[in-house]
Amino acid sequence: MNKIEEKRLTLFETAQKFGINATETIRCSQELDSLLNGCRGGLNPAAQIEHGRTAGKKEAFS
């Protein structure tokens, strides 16, 4: 958990220094995502939400 907290703080500092769309910030965000995914052992939160919405439903294509 310490690694996650350290990376989260680094992400905030990087975003303040370079902006949220900077390559450094995006890379740091992806590293944080990887750490979080490792703790949760699977899908990221957005994928879990999307999976929950579409579970058991068939998609219709026009």
Results as ranks from 00 to 15, higher is better:
G52I: 08
R8E: 06
T14P: 00
A15T: 12
T14W: 02
A60I: 08
E59A: 12
Q30F: 00
Q30P: 00
E24I: 10
N2S: 10
G52S: 10
F18N: 14
I20M: 12
Q48V: 08
T23K: 09
T23W: 12
F18K: 06
L35K: 05
L32C: 02
G19I: 01
K58W: 12
S62Y: 15
L32D: 01
C28T: 10
T10K: 10
T14C: 04
A55F: 11
F61T: 06
P45Q: 02
A22Q: 02
K58V: 05
A60C: 11
I4A: 08
L11P: 02
E13Q: 10
N21G: 05
K7P: 08
G56K: 03
N2A: 15
N44E: 01
T23L: 10
H51I: 07
L32H: 03
T10M: 13
T23N: 15
E50M: 09
G52W: 08
H51T: 14
A15C: 07
I4F: 09
E13T: 04
N21P: 02
A55D: 00
I26E: 09
N21A: 13
Q16P: 05
Q16Y: 14
L36C: 11
T23M: 09
N44D: 08
I49C: 02
G56T: 03
S34Q: 09
A22R: 00
R8H: 15
M1Y: 12
Q16S: 06
R27G: 04
E13F: 01
T25D: 01
M1I: 06
F18G: 03
E13R: 13
K58E: 14
Q30M: 00
T23A: 10
